[in-house]
Structures are given as C-alpha cells and as structure tokens.
Design a protein around this nucleic acid. Structure first.
Length: 812
RNA sequence: GGGGAUGUGGUGAAACUGGUAUACACGCUAGUUUUAGGAACUAGUGCCGCAAGGCGUGGAGGUUCGAUUCCUCUCAUCCCCACCA
C-alpha cells in the first residue's frame, strides 16, 4: 500500500488546477453571490506563516461557501507601493519596481503552493499604472468635492530618514524603522477630509457584523464628545479666547486659562513684560522630541500677562500657555477648573493658582479630587442644581448672550496622505505661476511614476529632481508649471482595492456600476486586527465618499469582518528575525505538505486567537493524515462488488452523519479547530468499526461513507481530498461538489447515557432509551447500588429530569 | 489614566440555550515488535488516597436541584490608545 506522498500529490493537483482554473468567479451567474476577501499582502519578499494563517482561513471559508452553492468571488492582489521597496533600492541598488515585482512573482508561487482557491485572473497590483490611474482619479474626485485639500501642518518628521512619518510609524516616540528621534515639523501637506464623515463612521458600525472590540476601538478613535464652545473675552482687548468644554457646569470654578503654545492668539495677547518668557517657553517646547513629550508627565507653562473675563460672572482670570494643551484638539485653548480636573489641578498647585470647588458629590462623601458629576456649590444662581441640569441651563443662558454654543468635538483628525517618497502613486496636481493649484484633467491620467530615479534621501521627494517629471505645462493656460512631487500614502491605494476586484480590467471606470452591483459589498473580510483604525476606517470613508458621489449604492464596504489571531514563535514570542524564532513556511511545506500545515493551523486553537507555533502539533496532524490516507487507500482499492446487509451499516452512516452535522455547524462560526478534532474522532471510530464491519466485504457503503467524509474535509486539505476523491472513482473535482447534508434521523441515538445526581453530585450513569420517563428512571436509579447508598434513610424531596441528559435527586 | 481581551491537566485546547469538566491532539510512563532516518502498536495518564471516597475550570462570595457557563467583588497576564479639556 502506497504511503502518503504529499509532494507527489500536491504537485499533481497544483498543475491540474492551474491549468483548468476551476475557481473563476462568474460575472453572469444566477446563483447568489458571495464576496469572500482577505486583506491583500504587501510584497515584502516571502509569505510568512502569518500570511498563511490569514489566507488559509479565508480559503477555508471560500471553499465552504462555494460547496454550499454560492457564486464565490475570492480574489487576491498586492499592496505593492510603499517604503520597503525604496529602502531595498537604496541599500542594494535595485530599482524599487524590480524589487517589488520580483517579490510578487515569488509570492504568487507560494500562494499556489498553499492551495489557495483564488480567481487568479482578477489579480490587482496597486503599483500598476492601470491601477494607480484610478487611485489618482479617486484623489481628483475627492478634490472636486472639497474632500482633498492642502494645508500647512505640523507632522512627524524622522531626523534620520529625512521624511515625514505617519502616526502609526512612530513607535514610542521613535522612528519605527531606524529608531531615531521624531520631531514635529511644519509642512505643506495634502489631507483628506475624513472628519466630514465622523458621525456616519460611528453610526454605520451598527449596520455591520464586526467584532465588538473593533467597533469599540473605531468609536474611541473617532472620539466623539458633546459639550460647548465658550467665549472668554480678553480683558482690555478685542480678542476672544474660545474654549471647548464638556463640563460647562464647572464654569464658576474656572480660575485660569491655558493656551497651546502654537495657538496664534499667544503672540497677540502676550504683554511686553512677559514676552521674553513666553518666547523662551515656545522655543523650548518646539525642540522637544516625541519621546520627551511622552516621558514628561510634569506640566509646565508660563503666564502671558493677559487676563480673560469669565462670561458667567465677569471674574478676571489669568491666561497662561502650557504644552499640556494640544493645538490639534478643540480650539487649542482650555478653561482650567483645577478643583475638578486632575491636569488643571496639578498645574494650579505647581504655579500657585487659585482652586475653587464648585461641584460636590451628591452623597456628600468628601473626595480629594472630585471629577465626577454632582451637585453645584459656589455657583451663583446655579448653586444646588445637579451637573446635568446646570449644563443645560448655563448653555441656555450664555447662548442668549452669544457667549457659548453647543458643540460636538472629535478626536479624529483629517487624514494626511502626502509622503515625501518616490515609490507611491503621484498626486495629480500641477502648480502654475498664473493659475495656481490645478488638478490634472482626467483624460491625462495616469500621471506616470518615472522608473529610473536617483533615490537620494534629502527630505524631499526624489521626484523633485526628475526634470522630465517635475517640469510640465499647465493644463489650464498651457504655460510653464511644475508637478506636485509628493506621492500618496499607500493606505489610499488600499482604501478602494476591493472595488477593483469586481471589474479589474476596466480601463474606462474604476469599476462598472453593473459589476459592482453584482459583487459588492464584501460579504466576508478576514485580516489582522492591527488595521482597526487605519485601513478599516479609511476604506469606510472612501465607500461613503464614493456613495455620495453617486458611484456606489451601499454604505459599508465590509459586511462581516473577522480577525485571525497572531502566530507566535515556538518560544511564545512574536516572530522576528533578530530573535531567530521565525518559521519558514516553505521549509514546512517541503517536509509535511501544504495540507498538513493548513490543517495544523486550523487545529492549533480558535482562529481568532492564534498562538505559539508548536512543531509537535504539526507532527500530530501529519500523523493523522498518514493514517487517514492509508485507511482511505484500503477502501479505494477494495474490489467494488459487495453490498452490505448489516446493522453495522447503520452505525457507519450514523458516524458520518454526525460528522457532517458537526462540521456544518462549526464551520460558519470559524471553529476550524473543532472541525479537525471531529475528523480525528471520526477516523478513530471508523478504524474501530472496520474491525466488526470489514471493508472488503462491504466496500460499496464504505466508499460512499469515506467520500462523504472527504467532502467535509476538502476545504482544509484540498490536495489530499482531491486525490482520494478520484481514487474512489468519483467524477469531477471534489471542490466543485455540493456540501453534503446530514441525515437528521441518524443523529438521534437509540440509547442515551443519563447521569444520576444526588444532591448535586453524579453518582451513577444509566443507559436508557431517549423516550424514558422520569418515573421509570427514578425507579431504575433507586435500584442502583451506587445511588441507593446515598438515598438510604433519606426522603426524596424533589427531582429534576432533563431529557437524555441528567436526573437530579434532592434529599433532605 | 482610558479601553479591550484572556485565565480550564505537564502543553495546545474541548464542553450545544446552566446539565456526567478535561473531547481531540501533544507530551509523559509502562509494555510489545529488534524498529534505522520525523518509528509503529497496546495500555495508562487532572490532583490527593491502598481503597471507599474526597478535591478540582486564577481567587473570594452569591443565585440555583445543578455554575467553566449567570451576578458581585478581587488578582494576574497580554494587547491597543494615551495630557482629547
């Protein structure tokens, strides 16, 4: 009997499937569509085991849906713009394009090796001009509608890499790549107005089936808070300081104000006497690195010399500046209420500013720092009101005098998309001396990224030094003009790629409405949780913006979302080259086969949990496959001439029916691990049954049974099951078959085990028919020695019977 | 500081709406077969106890005939955000 030779089998079917393209998603198909998507990879060079985990889970699901009669779209592509390509180019002298496309070739081979069932014809590569043409089109569309704008703004700047960094690339105040200091630098930047959609980005979450923690994280990131904007007049000047507060009920306790050092009002209101001190403080805060700011928990500030008038009582209060007030949130100024805010309290104590208590706890329990809602004191006419009542009344009063308005604030900032980098999509904007900022007309797209570029690190985009690119003519007046040289953040590319899969070869639109109607929105999206507040938020913004442009007729791009867990090294730590705990999937495939890895990854634990890679666990799964293969081969080679006529046949059918039932229930919940344990249990039962119900004498029923088992194993082990499926004499690929249904009548056992409890403790178990009545059971139970000894001399007070499960007896 | 997740054997983990805790696998122990390459097979394996029995799902309470599951408090570990007014 031939042993399980994964190399031979996987090579064979890999070739067959590539040739016949069995996973093509048909645009014209009557069956219900199912759009199954995994987050496309960055072509870093090699597929690592985390990719495998992500993609195999997505692939299980696609195969399951396909077998359940859906017209499945299961595409793949590459997020191929980005900095690593540029770094490789600088380090090794390879052009970013060459490096990227070589990596894509390699990763495509690896994806085939996984046994992934993609529709390869729909591949999308974001660095292809046919793709980024439409990324640029998206930019223009947002630009037209005022959702893309340019602004001078402070950004993270790496002092070593000479480039701007996204917030997510700053780790603990340092550059994620080189580990050097990050400072704040003011630059002219392009931004997308994601804040316009802040409210809908919150409410839309109610429509989608996403992990609750992901929804919560997005809500927190958007950070909606309701409050009021209050105007404080600067004493003896025309200037007004606006502040945002959620606690207008504490207005009587505002004893000073603090402005952010960058607040433009600072230079206007600072007095002559204080000027020098203020200057000094501002230059000091500017020089601070991100790390300084994070470590420094002590609050600092200086007095501007100016005073403001509290609009509620005309009290004169001093105006300070301090860098604990952020320019980017609210109005860049606060009213400080040191009695009821910890930060203000710390500041007041340090600089000996007055502290006035204006709220006390309702239960009158004195607390050192009371920051919660309570009852007002020392608050003029409002004394005695609760915080909630006071809020409404104070706003009502001040609104009348135009001193305050209701206001909602968000933590969410507009999305900064400019990058001073080469390997990205050019921003389709031209600067003309006469006409100013001019968008490139749609007919001139794409603005092609030049290929031969000198990649030096100067702090400006290398494109600035490419004369052929940089110098151009103005599309409006035809005069001399220059191009925008910054490129777009790669997250722009990935904010709409899922739309392109519906119609990847369209050269007239980013995708036709017809095809998007056919496929979108995405029904199932699988990917890492690390994209929670980035890609997953940006994509939602794009979808809503395109919908408002009349291009889409749905509100949310991803109806169902699941995160795969993270695979750690065998030592339980995050895999990294420096720790030497990286698992190379290629080596494992060579040794154990793709099917074994797919199965092991599903067996190791709940899919959303992940965990450490355990080489022994993989061996265990491989052992199962070896045994299963040999067992199935015996069935395959049994001569096909006998017919069963035995009660044992019912046992066989029952085992298979129970498996189908289990897998069909666990699969939709992505409980892949229990599916695999189900296969193992089933095989153990089958091996035992074969001893009483010989395969050779009953080959027909055995062949039917094992074929059914293969069907439910097919999504996990596509190569092995395909091989055995044909060996059993079946026709057509197993992966295009219908998912089997279980025979419900076989799921009911003739006899069930009922546990007998006395006072909550199990004392015996009885094998009875499922129809048995409580009285009968009670009678049998009393006759059991194991039970009787606990009933001796006692009266039975009550008993409970849960059908086929438990009989609980309570005595005195 | 805020938010989230997770605690079950030596290990990864099961347990349907509260109903026999530890399925499945790894590891380990003993035995068989003298077995070349990551062995196979059989038996055993939560803890204490010779046994009967008792104790066991991070800890302490509670609800219940019955709690890994529900409630209250608490401890530990991990992740994310973080001076957000």
């Amino acid at each position: 009997m031939a042993k399980y030779d994964h190399k031979k089998i996987e090579k064979k079917w890999h070739d067959v499937w590539t040739e016949t393209e069995i996973y093509v998603a048909n645009d014209n198909d009557e069956r219900e569509k199912y759009y199954n998507l995994v987050m496309y990879p960055y072509p870093s060079g090699d597929l690592h085991i985390g990719h495998w985990y992500n993609f195999s889970g997505g692939d299980f699901y696609a195969r399951y849906k396909r077998m359940n009669g859906y017209n499945v779209l299961n595409p793949i592509g590459f997020d191929s713009f980005g900095l690593p390509a540029e770094n490789a180019a600088i380090k090794r002298g390879i052009a970013p394009k060459t490096w990227t496309y070589d990596n894509i070739d390699n990763m495509l081979k690896q994806l085939h090796r996984i046994g992934a069932s993609y529709d390869w014809d729909r591949m999308v590569i974001t660095s292809d001009p046919e793709y980024y043409k439409w990324t640029q089109w998206m930019f223009l569309e947002l630009y037209k509608r005022g959702l893309a704008y340019k602004k001078k703004q402070v950004a993270n700047w790496c002092t070593d890499c000479n480039t701007v960094l996204a917030n997510e690339q700053v780790v603990d105040g340092k550059c994620e790549r080189c580990g050097n200091d990050v400072i704040q630098k003011e630059l002219d930047q392009w931004l997308f107005k994601i804040t316009d959609y802040a409210d809908e980005l919150i409410s839309g979450l109610d429509q989608v089936d996403w992990p609750e923690r992901t929804k919560i994280a997005q809500r927190n990131w958007i950070g909606r808070s309701e409050g009021a904007e209050v105007n404080f007049k600067v004493d003896g000047s025309k200037h007004v300081i606006k502040v945002f507060t959620t606690r207008i009920d504490t207005l009587y306790g505002a004893t000073f104000m603090v402005l952010a050092p960058e607040n433009p009002l600072v230079e206007k209101i600072t007095t002559k006497e204080q000027f020098e001190l203020v200057e000094k403080y501002i230059s000091m805060t500017k020089g601070k690195t991100e790390l300084d700011r994070m470590q420094e928990k002590v609050k600092t500030g200086v007095f501007t010399g100016a005073y403001a008038l509290n609009p509620i009582n005309n009290e004169k209060i001093p105006v300070w500046i301090g860098d604990y007030v952020l320019m980017g949130y609210g109005t860049g100024a606060i009213m400080a209420v040191p009695a009821h805010d910890e930060r203000d309290n710390e500041f007041a104590k340090k600089y000996k500013l007055p502290i006035i208590e204006v709220v006390e706890p309702i239960n009158n329990k004195k607390e050192i720092m009371f920051t919660a809602y309570g009852k007002l004191i020392n608050s003029g006419d409002f004394t005695g009101l609760t915080s909630e009542e006071a809020k409404t009344k104070i706003i009502a009063l001040l609104s009348k005098e135009e001193k305050a308005t209701k206001k909602i604030n968000y933590k969410l900032r507009d999305w900064l998309i400019s990058r001073q980098r080469y390997w990205g999509s050019p921003i389709p904007i031209v600067y003309c001396d006469k006409c100013g900022e001019v968008p490139v007309p749609e007919k001139d797209l794409p603005v092609v990224l030049p290929e031969e570029v000198n990649m030096k690190s100067t702090g400006e985009s290398p494109l600035k030094y490419e004369k052929d690119f940089y110098d151009t003519t103005c599309p409006k007046c035809g005069g001399k003009a220059t191009r925008e040289t910054d490129t777009m953040d790669t997250f722009v590319c990935s904010s709409w790629y899922y739309l392109r899969y519906a119609d990847p070869k369209n050269d007239r639109e980013f995708a036709s409405k017809e095809k998007m109607k056919q496929w979108l929105p995405v029904d199932m999206y699988i990917g890492g949780a690390e994209h929670t507040v980035l890609h997953l938020l940006y994509s939602r913004f794009f979808t809503k913006a395109l919908r408002d442009g009349g291009y889409l007729d749905f509100d949310e791009p991803f109806m169902k979302l699941r995160h795969q867990g993270m695979i750690l090294g065998p030592d339980g730590l995050k895999m990294s080259k420096s720790k030497g705990n990286v698992i190379d999937p290629d080596i494992e495939v060579e040794k154990y086969g793709a099917d074994a890895i797919r199965m092991y990854l599903s067996f190791m634990g709940p899919y959303e949990q992940g965990g450490p890679w355990n080489p022994n666990g993989l061996v265990g799964v491989r052992r199962f496959l070896d045994k299963f293969y040999e067992f199935a081969q015996i069935i395959c080679s049994a001569s096909n001439n006998q017919d069963a006529n035995s009660i044992k046949q019912a046992d066989l059918d029952k085992i298979i029916s129970k498996l189908i039932d289990k897998v069909s229930r666990d699969f939709p919940e992505m409980k892949f691990n229990t599916c695999i344990s189900g296969f193992m249990e089933t095989m153990n039962s089958l091996v035992a049954l074969a001893k009483e119900f010989p395969i050779t004498d009953n080959s027909k029923v055995w062949k039917k049974a094992i074929s059914q088992m293969l069907l439910v194993m097919a999504p996990f082990a596509p190569f092995l099951t395909e091989e055995l499926w044909y060996n059993l004499g079946n026709n057509g690929s197993i992966h295009l078959q219908q998912w089997p249904t279980s025979d419900k009548s076989l799921l009911i056992d003739d006899l069930v085990t009922v546990a007998i409890q006395v006072n909550g403790k199990v004392r015996d178990t009885l094998l009875v028919s499922p129809g048995a009545e409580e009285v009968d059971l009670l009678k049998i139970a009393k006759e059991s020695d194991k039970v009787a000894k606990y009933l001796e001399g006692k009266n039975i007070l009550k008993s409970f019977y849960v059908k086929s499960k438990i009989l609980s007896i309570v005595t005195d």
